[in-house]
Simulated scan of single mutants.
Amino acid sequence: MKRLTNLITGRALLIVVLGILIVFPSGCSKKRSEAKEIKIGVLMPLTGDAASIGVPAWNGIQLAIEQINSRRNSEEPLLELVSEDTKALPAEGLSALQKLISIEKLKFVIGPLTSTVTLAVAPLAEQKKVVIISPGASAPKISESGDYIFRSEISEKLGGAIQATMAVNKLAYRRVACVYINTDYGAGLFGVFKKSFEQGGGSVVLSEAFDQGETDFRAIISKIKSEEVDAVFLVAIDEVINFVRQKKELGLVAQIYTTPIFENKLYLEKLGELAEGIVYVYYGTYNPESQDDRTISFVRAYESRFNSAPTYYSANAYDAAYMLYTALKESKYQLKTVKDALYNIKNFEGVSGTMSFDSNGDVTKDVSLKTVENGTFQFYKNVR
């Protein structure tokens, strides 16, 4: 009798187990996320010569990930940021990426911000199949740096050409001097600008490169004064402050024509009235004064979180974080397919503009002219 009871009990248990397997099959067709937590690396210049653009970018990333985590459902993994300071130096950036890969085992990185560091880390990222999304690297060579390299900033191959065309057709510059930072970013932009400007009928009468962090531009400015130029095409980061001050000191009256990096309130504070009338090209449609709901929400959240105004790179980095999240979500958090999901992103509506990744991991954006008027950044003209 006991054996019969055990047999019946065993059969009943088997039926229950089979029922559970039928209702909850192990090979469920709906894939679950691979991890309850996904770490994302961040490579930014938090100290050094490019910290003035790196810290606001880092803030934009933090804001985006905090928002994403606060809205996630119970099935979505928590996103955790692990940041490293590149100091805008290639060796520091490469060492930081090696650390993120070997110690943190990361597969996704937002950054680096600068072109030189991005190009330095790209081979390792390709080798280890780590996705890189830079919110600021614009050197043309990045388009050919690998399948795992993306950016939410447009390439200077496009931006520099449009900037040169606007210089000729919109600003009526015919003779310019080019002064540029001697990095992959600066040299790449100068090369594209010079070629396009001269093809458009303009003349580059003088070109001078300077090292990152340079503070004395008097010799270069003196050379420019000996030429008759309509404008100085200046490619710089924080060096713009001393260049503009010394330009005034030496009495150079030529117009300053510069890059999107100039849209930083730090420069307005440092330069005061000397910033008035400076013209610069601007990529994307982000305007902190816009009444667009997306922009208003971003600016308010950023100012509340960091007690400062967001910059051009804050918006770019914020969008880069959301684009990565979009790819993670589309791939159902299957880490091996995130790269392909990024390539499939089309018409992403970001704070900095509407973006789609092409086959090189590059994006296109609207290009505009802006200037400083009455101590504020103002749109000048839109150019498609």
Rank of each mutant, 00 (worst) to 15 (best):
V372S: 08
A120V: 09
C28D: 12
D358W: 09
S356K: 00
K270S: 13
F379K: 11
A209W: 07
Q67N: 11
L324F: 12
K223T: 02
S196W: 06
I181V: 13
A122Y: 12
Y180C: 01
E34D: 05
S290C: 09
G159M: 10
A125V: 11
A301I: 02
K157H: 02
N307Q: 03
S297Y: 10
L18D: 03
L13G: 12
V131I: 12
L369P: 07
F197Y: 09
M1R: 12
K2M: 13
I278N: 07
N344P: 00
R11S: 14
V117Q: 04
A187L: 05
F348V: 04
A164T: 11
E349S: 10
V17W: 04
Q246D: 02
K170D: 09
A64V: 08
P310Q: 13
E373K: 15
I61S: 07
R174Q: 09
K128R: 15
P45S: 12
R151N: 07
G19E: 13
S308A: 11
N316V: 02
S83N: 07
R11Y: 14
L100K: 01
R174D: 02
V338T: 10
S352T: 08
K223Q: 09
N242K: 08
L21P: 10
F377A: 03
N169I: 00
E214M: 01
N264Q: 06
M323W: 10
E84T: 02
Y282A: 06
I53H: 07
D216C: 10
W58R: 05
V204Y: 05
E276P: 03
A315C: 02
S297C: 03
N264K: 03
T47Q: 09
Q98A: 11
A57M: 14
G19R: 10
K247G: 00
L369W: 11
S331M: 11
S356C: 01
V253P: 00
S352M: 03
N73R: 10
Y282W: 15
V205G: 01
V192R: 06
G10K: 00
V279G: 07
I101Y: 04
G202C: 07
Y283I: 04
Y148N: 01
E289H: 10
T5G: 03
I133R: 01
E84S: 07
G159V: 05
G188Y: 04
A120H: 08
D85K: 08
E349L: 06
N316M: 09
N169K: 08
A167G: 06
R32Q: 14
S145H: 03
V299D: 04
T86S: 10
E239V: 09
L342F: 07
R294D: 08
Y322F: 11
Y257H: 02
L266I: 13
G27M: 04
S308C: 09
A88F: 12
M44G: 09
G160N: 05
E144V: 00
Y282T: 10
P25E: 06
G111Q: 06
F262G: 01
F24Q: 06
G186L: 15
V383R: 12
G111V: 05
F108N: 02
Q291A: 02
N382F: 12
K2A: 15
